[in-house]
């Protein structure tokens, strides 16, 4: 059974296995197909048109399915690996062990934002950024640049308290849990973390940074926590709605999975802890 753990509680051996599996997916080319898929969706999901991966109710089930597929790819390399999650309300500084050279490496240097240490630094020659929108092929970050702050636990709890999953117009202007978690409205959770990391994480090609998976694993866990808190609340919309994925509609690019199929994560993995 796959158990997704808090990244801060991983052993040295677990960190090494996770990093090695990432490097192998990069080497064999599969990693970059995930980056390309994400970028395709982020560029085509629009508030006024078809939207599946982002700025829409299916933001959460789409990323859940996307992470399951990625985790299965990792496990094809090493069956012991599970996706860790990054609780950025706790591990909220560039000094966190997440950013140590034995794991993801640290922030980028000032001159060009280039990450200079860790397994994903360009100098190690194992992590070229191939799916990109500018000429630079090295991983970039600017952790907390400009004095930006990660969301606090209180801000997360306020969003978890929202009892409605999503609301019309089912986009970046919506009220409700999904859009507040995604961050287009209110305190801003998910979007703000992308911006705090900076570099590639702030772009449409954000999965170029391996922290993408740990950030989204935590967003996914917050959805599971929200479900525990609001057992009577359900995915919305349930009836066919223009441009968005209703409960029983299939999601691109898989076309064989619906939000309803993704509501329960437990057939696929467990979390090391879930809110009561």
């Amino acid at each position: 059974m796959t158990v997704r753990k808090n990244q801060a509680r991983l052993t040295v051996t677990e960190k090494r296995a996770f990093v090695d599996a990432l490097l192998e997916l990069k080497r064999n080319g599969r990693y970059d197909t995930f980056v390309a898929t994400h970028n395709d969706f982020i560029m085509s999901d629009t508030d006024s048109g078809d939207r599946v991966g982002h700025r829409s109710p299916s933001f959460l089930p789409w990323h859940r399915r996307f992470l399951i597929e990625f985790e299965q790819a990792l496990q094809s390399v090493d069956p012991t690996v599970a996706l860790p999650y990054w609780d950025w309300t706790v591990d909220r500084t560039p000094g966190a062990s997440l950013w140590a050279p034995d794991f993801l490496g640290g922030s980028g240097r000032g001159r060009d934002g280039q990450v200079m240490d860790g397994p994903f630094a360009r100098g190690a020659n194992r992590w070229a950024v191939n799916v990109r929108v500018d000429g630079r092929d090295f991983l970039r970050r600017s952790l907390g640049a400009g004095g930006r702050q990660l969301p606090t636990r209180a801000e997360v709890d306020a969003v978890l308290a929202m009892g409605t999953y999503d609301a019309a117009p089912w986009n970046s202007a919506s009220d409700g849990f999904r859009n507040h978690l995604e961050g287009w409205r209110g305190a801003n959770l998910h979007n703000r973390v992308h911006v705090w990391v900076g570099g590639h994480m702030a772009t449409g090609a954000s999965p170029n940074d391996p922290v993408f998976w740990m950030h989204h694993a935590f967003i996914d866990k917050l959805w599971a926590d929200w479900q525990k808190l609001h057992p009577a609340s359900a995915y919305l919309p349930t009836a066919a709605t223009g441009n968005v994925v209703a409960l029983h509609d299939t999601m691109r690019p898989w076309n064989n999975v619906t939000p309803a199929d993704m509501l329960d994560h437990t057939p696929h993995y467990a979390y090391d802890s879930v809110a009561a």
């Binding site: 982020i42 560029m43 508030d47 700025r55 287009w184 998910h190 911006v195 702030a202």
Partner: peptide
């Protein structure tokens, strides 16, 4: 530069995709 307008009238680009 790939840009997109949000429902509230703000803008993002593929370089800054999460900060309107």
């Amino acid at each position: 530069l790939h840009v997109m307008q949000n429902a509230d009238g703000t803008w993002i680009s593929v370089i800054n995709h999460y900060e309107p």
